[in-house]
Amino acid sequence: MSLRETINQDVKNAMKAKDTKKRDALRLLTSAFKQIEVDERKELTDEDVIKIIQTQVKRRNDAASQYKEAGRDDLMQIELDEITYYETYLPKQLSDEELTTEVKAIVEKTGASSMKDMGKVMGMASKELAGKADGKRISDAVKKALA
């Protein structure tokens, strides 16, 4: 069963359980899938679905931080709840220690020695760690490794 089929099944299960928060959050996600399919005229693979979910998580994090600044804790909590639903479909994220270890190995592979080589390291790290860590976390780890 593909990731998208799993999500569609979970929407049905949330409907049956009358879990409106989960149902609505997952419907927003399936809507994003359909939008990409229509815009780009292609069938989504599991990798595409993961990228879309990551984008949605990032959007929800941004919105939650803006709601927090505005003092709207009620709306912030809705965004955070949606993030928890979405993260169940993402691959397990690397811990900070694992990420540092992976980045150090990539730095050694590329032979990078200073911040001038950051682009080369980031290119390889982004490919190898795609889905396992957020781009910002990867960037921070690369900066620490090259500093």
Rank of each mutant, 00 (worst) to 15 (best):
M1E: 04
M1K: 04
S2P: 13
L3C: 04
T6K: 14
T6R: 15
I7P: 12
I7L: 11
N8H: 10
D10L: 04
D10N: 13
V11P: 05
V11R: 10
N13S: 08
A17R: 15
A17F: 15
K18V: 08
T20D: 09
K21N: 12
K21W: 01
K21M: 08
K22Q: 15
R23M: 15
D24C: 11
A25F: 09
L26I: 02
L28T: 04
L29S: 08
A32P: 02
E40H: 06
E40I: 00
E40P: 02
K42T: 07
K42C: 07
E43D: 03
E43L: 11
L44P: 06
T45F: 06
T45R: 11
E47P: 04
D48L: 08
I50M: 12
I52R: 12
I52L: 08
I53E: 07
I53V: 05
Q54R: 15
T55Q: 12
V57W: 02
K58D: 04
K58T: 08
R60Q: 12
D62Y: 07
A64S: 14
A64G: 09
A64L: 07
Q66A: 14
Y67T: 09
Y67S: 12
Y67P: 07
Y67E: 14
K68Q: 14
E69V: 04
G71K: 13
D74H: 03
D74R: 13
Q77E: 11
L80C: 05
L80H: 01
D81G: 11
T84Q: 12
Y85I: 03
Y86G: 02
E87G: 03
P91S: 08
Q93L: 05
L94N: 02
D96I: 01
D96S: 10
E97K: 13
T100P: 00
T100Y: 05
T101P: 00
E102F: 12
E102T: 00
I106M: 09
I106D: 06
I106R: 07
V107Q: 05
E108R: 05
T110P: 05
G111S: 02
G111K: 00
A112L: 12
K116I: 10
K116R: 03
D117P: 08
M118D: 00
M118Q: 09
K120C: 04
M122E: 02
G123L: 07
M124D: 01
A125C: 08
S126P: 00
L129M: 11
L129V: 07
A130K: 08
G131P: 00
G131D: 01
D134Y: 09
K136C: 00
R137T: 02
I138G: 09
I138W: 14
I138L: 13
S139L: 10
A141F: 11
A141H: 10
V142G: 12
V142T: 02
K143F: 03
K143E: 03
K144V: 05
A145P: 07
A145I: 02
A147S: 15
